[in-house]
Design a protein around this nucleic acid. Structure first.
Lengths: 344, 344
DNA sequence: TGTTAGCACTCCAGGCGCTCGAGTGCTAAA
DNA sequence: TTTAGCACTCGAGCGCCTGGAGTGCTAACA
């Protein structure tokens, strides 16, 4: 275990390094207020910390840099999440105070806002619609054997699916279909849609709808919704290039192109069920991100996790501030969605 | 005017430079098949071309590089748009052969596809919905004084607006409202919606709807749709970093951050009414893009321009290939939309 | 008159060596 | 246990040099 003095020094090194982006030497550290020992003492402690793997030296006559293990210890044991500064808080609140109806738009706004606040890259995974419950189904016939099915969920999200069917289906049948659907289907999670429909509706439809096969075909198409991918919003990717660790263009490019692959992001993104998850360096298990940290939080609807927000940046990151901001934002998003869903 | 030989040399320099990304010397040019003169002759011509402003020299003992004026002359006079190679054509066709219902999804797919084909950054301005005509309006009441208005357009695009109204409005009134709306509003461009509604509907509603003020309030909210910004899709922005001209990280960052500003893109983007527009270097009238070229095309619906696609890259760009691809794609998009709209 | 060979000149990229400053580890004293 | 002092190490930055690529000019040639 680390002595209190070692912990103090490790903290100080990390905080300085996050600010300066340059290896921290013993002389520079000694100028810190909380640090009352001479450079020589610090040097001894640094040597010990390095031996234990919390620090590394880029080269023999340079200062020390925190290692992945060092950051991990800092995040787990040394960081005390303090109060967010008022200015940031006000700014965040102002965004959620706006009247925004579209969940999509909220995701986009959040991505922008966080990228401004943190100067890092923001990843927002839009609300998973497949766990949401249906509130209403509507079919809008367009004529010519086509229609648009509109599914409104719990959280006010609207999914639309284009549907084709035999043009011989009567307007009456469509109406009946919609009525029956709404009777049976409200409150069912989208992911369960197909199962529920087949289980509960087949018999009923047979009785009420003239052209049974067509109705089933329509149902089938409506059920295509759950296969949609999760929506991914990226904000402030250009911020990355401002970080000195990405002055190597090749590295920056490989990460940017990762960010362009939505499916990858959706799979890889940390989905901690509660609290905030921090993945440092190699913990990301992705070569390209071995010098990056991802801090991620989850937002919910009715207690169920429905989406995620995260910050991607170099391991040299202001963990404290970013964690504060993410914690606040995920909570605000949860409240926002809840307000939205319950007010309907 | 340029002599034929000067034109030949200018062409050759541009084509070589696009491939090599390095200044082209007289010796290297002389190895070209079509060029039968000695390096010395070429040097003389080069000196003339430079004097006239079609070429520049990065420094005294380097080869020549095409200037903005040089590219412009090439695009305007030397480039003959040939046939696109079969492979590319097949690939493009395969994308449009898929059944895709959502116009949004098409835009996204096109952005991805073109970025793969061209290794450049792709910008797609989604179909302007405000010039499209309404096909159908539906109101889905959610209870509690809220509803979702669904506007289906001509091209199959679906817009949704959340609407709030006094909870005292009766279900009957809503139904009447929708019926009246659909009677009057079908075929009206979204941008004209508000005007039409006020002109034609006010009187009618007064007669048929009990709570007139509420109905007007609802209309008002429905009319918020046209104020949406144009949808912007960016694909392959990371490709930019692979170009040697963007190895300067600062430059790359300033351009990437431009690309993140949707409003800027929507305003600045070239919107040639027909054909393909090429903006070279300073022609973009944006400091950050003074070394970039944008090639843009327009796609239509029913003859009316509704959206745009473009490629952004360094001025050193394969104009021929990019123009072929854009030309094909914009036509394919137009056909796609037309098929979509007419089949309903 | 237009084209070409030859040659002197220019300039940059890249390698080498040097210096300077920052930072360390070690030793010995407090 | 802490600290002062000192020798040592290493990299960043600067200047120097050289080789190669490419030019412009001149003079010869068809």
């Amino acid at each position: 275990m680390l002595t209190p003095r070692q912990q103090l020094i490790l903290s100080a090194i990390i905080e300085d390094y996050v600010r300066m982006a340059e290896p921290i030497g013993s002389r520079a550290l000694a100028k810190h207020e909380e640090i009352q020992f001479s450079p020589a003492t610090i040097r001894n402690e640094m040597a010990d910390l390095e031996e234990m793997g919390y620090l590394t030296q880029p080269h023999a006559s340079a200062g020390r840099v925190p290692s992945q293990k060092g950051y991990r210890f800092y995040v787990d044991n040394l960081l005390r999440l303090g109060q967010m500064d008022r200015e940031t808080g006000e700014f965040l609140k102002s965004v959620f105070a706006k009247r925004i109806d579209e969940v999509e738009q909220v995701a986009r706004e959040v991505a922008n806002m966080l990228s401004m606040l943190t100067k890092q890259t923001v990843i927002v995974l839009g609300p998973k619609t497949d766990t949401e419950k249906l509130r209403k189904i509507e079919l809008i016939p367009l004529g010519g054997g086509r229609a648009i099915a509109i599914l409104v969920t719990n959280s006010g999200h609207v999914e639309t699916v284009h549907v084709r069917f035999s043009s011989e289906m009567e307007a009456d049948d469509v109406e009946t279909l919609v009525r029956v659907l709404n009777d049976k289907v409200v409150g069912v999670p989208i992911s369960e849609l197909r199962r529920t429909l087949y289980a509960e509706l087949a018999g009923e439809l047979h009785r009420t709808v003239a052209r049974f096969e067509d109705a089933i075909a329509v149902l089938n198409e409506v059920c295509h919704v759950p296969q949609r991918e999760e929506a991914v919003y990226i904000g402030g990717a250009s911020n990355m290039l401002a970080q000195p660790e990405f002055h190597d263009v090749g590295k920056a490019q490989s990460i940017l192109s990762l960010l362009e692959q939505n499916e990858f992001i959706a799979n890889w993104f940390p989905k901690a069920e509660d609290g905030i998850e921090v993945r440092i360096g190699a913990e990301n298990a992705v070569m390209e991100l071995k010098d990056c940290t991802v801090i991620a939080a989850t937002y919910r609807l009715g207690g169920v996790p429905v989406g995620h927000i995260g910050i991607l940046g170099p391991t040299r990151m202001d963990y404290n501030r970013v964690m504060q901001i993410l914690s606040f934002t995920s909570q605000a998003l949860t409240e926002f969605l809840t307000r939205f869903a319950s007010s309907g």
